[in-house]
């Protein structure tokens, strides 16, 4: 069971959270302009990374805030967490709402 660093509440046990999967899935701004292929890619395809993985979690039984974490899918080590709408602390990951295509 993971110990997850909520950016607002600190380290809390996994039972307080629900997982939202891969953060790098960004919903197209205008879905109606997307081809079937592009749309199904957004809906169904995930990278399923081995190693460092950016994913979003919901502190459902806590502060009810969504946020991102970086978790190693092999060791389960979590090395960072940050609010859902903000860029990765080191600015090198395109995962948040503010990064989506304009």
């Amino acid at each position: 069971m993971l110990n997850i660093p909520c950016p607002w509440c600190g380290l809390r046990s996994e039972v307080e959270f629900s997982s939202g999967g891969e953060s790098e899935v960004i919903r197209p701004l205008d879905p109606l302009k997307k081809s079937d292929h592009e749309w199904s890619d957004y809906l169904f395809n995930r990278t399923n990374k081995k190693g460092w993985h950016v994913e979003r979690w919901y502190h459902i039984h806590g502060c009810r805030k969504w946020f991102h974490i970086e978790r190693n899918t092999i060791t389960h080590e979590i090395r960072s967490s940050w609010p859902i709408t903000e860029k990765h602390p080191e600015g090198n990951l395109s995962v948040s709402y503010s990064d989506r295509e304009q």
Binding site: S18, R27, R56, Y58, I60, R64, K65, W66, I84, Y97
Partner: peptide, 11 residues
Amino acid sequence: FHWIDEWLQCE
């Protein structure tokens, strides 16, 4: 409730 909350916060 949580469904709407997710869309509101994340998208």
